[in-house]
Amino acid sequence: MSSTTSTRATAPTDHTVATGVPAHAPRRDDRGRSGGRRIGSHVFLIILAIYFITPLWWLIVAATKSNSGLFTGTGGPLWFDDQFAFFDNIAGLFTHQGGVYWRWFANSFLYAFAGGAGATILAILAGYGFAKYRFRGRGPFFTIVLASVMVPLTALVIPTFMLLSQMGLINTPWAVILPSLLNPFGVYLMRVYAQDAVPDELLEAARIDGAGELRTFAQVALPLLKPAIVTVLLLSVVGTWNNFFLPLAVLTDPELLPVTLGLNRWTALSNAGAGGEQVWNLITTGSFISIIPLILSFLFLQRYWQGGLAIGSVK
């Protein structure tokens, strides 16, 4: 009982500290603001939230319907059917085309995490190097990295495809993972963050204590970079998970597709019309399952990225 009370008492403080957003408590009580406007603001927000969440609601509902229920359901497109087919649909995902859906799902994980984690590690190292060492050529190279943020990555897909095909990497996981390691914006974020978050005095003290450069980095700097690391990791994972153009160009083997491409392929086949290929219920259920991991990561890592996304834009 007492522990519950104390948790509740400290919770708001934790939240404020964790988001990294300063608490403006006095301003938040809306003094001098009329009740009508407060209600107006809330109504506005709720309408916006409904707009943004409706497609997701539709997907949740659709994932519980059978193939025919999607067209002729009793509840309409935005409400559940009498028949609850969610588990049948999941079973369908295991049997349709030999359960290739789960293969796609695993591929997505592999590409997103190998590519995302790799890009993040490179960004941490480079960002720290740029922020804390004054090596020769630092200024010009960083300027080039910054400029490259404005190079549209899709313009690189066709030449990357040609290079990878010369290396014999087309239709291998490497064709997606290796190009995903490139994240200049992550380097920029990490540098801006490391500049302030890791005080030079602290590094100096570690060196005086006899720590080498690598140890200073791993034990002193790395823990201080945590919010930026989570943010860059999320951004890179989302970037790789989202990438459509690159895998579309470099993968043709159905076994290697990420889940997004696989579902798009099923949709194209279903639209093309052949009766046996119409698997709308599997597409909706498959889409629903495929978005769960990222939504959950964002929910659980909220306190890191909400502050982190502002890095580099706040002066």
Binding site: I121, L122, A123, L125, A126, Y128, G129, F130, K132, Y133, R134, F135, R136, G137, R138, F141, V145, S148, V151, A155, L156, I158, P159, T160, M162, L163, L178, P179, L181, L182, P184, V187, E213, F217
Partner: peptide, 30 residues
């Protein structure tokens, strides 16, 4: 000590060269 900066930046620099500079140059050449 400042040369350590290059060591930290090097892995990214390699990826940058292979997957950004090289494709751009290759596309232009093609």
């Amino acid at each position: 000590r400042q040369r350590w900066g290059w060591l930290f930046v090097a892995p990214f620099a390699i990826v940058f060269a292979i997957f950004l500079v090289l494709p751009l140059g290759y596309a232009f050449g093609m």
